[in-house]
Design a protein around this nucleic acid. Structure first.
Length: 170
DNA sequence: GCGGTAAATTATG
DNA sequence: CATAATTTACCGC
């Protein structure tokens, strides 16, 4: 089930399965949508509920405030490692930024920062799964599936864009 | 300290 | 085996 959400930043496209939000696409349609053939469509009731939650969360973030409630996410299309990384991303506090190395430690891969970055790039639900809050150890943006401008914009919205003073959790 | 190059590292196709 | 949204070390400026 595909739908669109209008925000002040443009029109996002989202895809829902019976389990929840499956994919989110930026206004410019940079990232592609992958819908498995055996996808289980959500009921009209679920769809309305998911769409409502997604829209609220998305608008909150673009408005500069942390979303109160995220919609359920269907991450079944990723590998175990990817799901582990995405799940860890959800634990990053609003306005904080982590580094790929730090994230690697969290998932028990102290030296697997690169693999973590690749997993983040495979994230089907940008923004809501804060893959944009992850920077390189030197405070650089490195990369972003939908384009670096988006990554920087999102960080500015959260007030987390501090290259020289990247949140030093720990 | 900053920029370029090289080797080490892990997950994925 | 090759690639990637990294990191660290080494070198020269």
């Amino acid at each position: 089930m595909k739908a669109t959400i209008n925000t002040s930043e443009g029109e996002f496209t989202v895809v829902f399965s019976s389990a929840g939000l499956m994919s989110l696409v930026f206004p410019l349609g940079v990232n592609e949508i992958f819908i498995p053939e055996d996808l289980e469509e959500p009921t009209e009731e679920q769809f309305q509920n998911y769409l409502s939650l997604t829209k609220a969360a998305l608008n909150s973030m673009i408005d500069g405030e942390p979303p109160e409630q995220l919609p359920p996410l269907d991450l079944s299309l990723g590998t175990e490692f990817q799901q582990l990384v995405w799940n860890t991303l959800l634990e990053i506090p609003w306005g904080e930024t982590w580094t790929y190395a730090q994230l690697g430690r969290e998932v028990d891969r102290p030296t697997g920062a690169r693999a973590v970055g690749t997993a983040c790039g495979a994230n089907p639900v940008p923004v809501l799964v804060p893959c944009h809050r992850v920077l390189s150890s030197s405070g650089g943006l490195c990369g972003f599936t939908a384009g670096l401008p988006w990554k920087q914009r999102l960080l500015e919205i959260e007030g987390a864009w501090l290259p020289l003073k990247v949140a030093v959790g720990d």
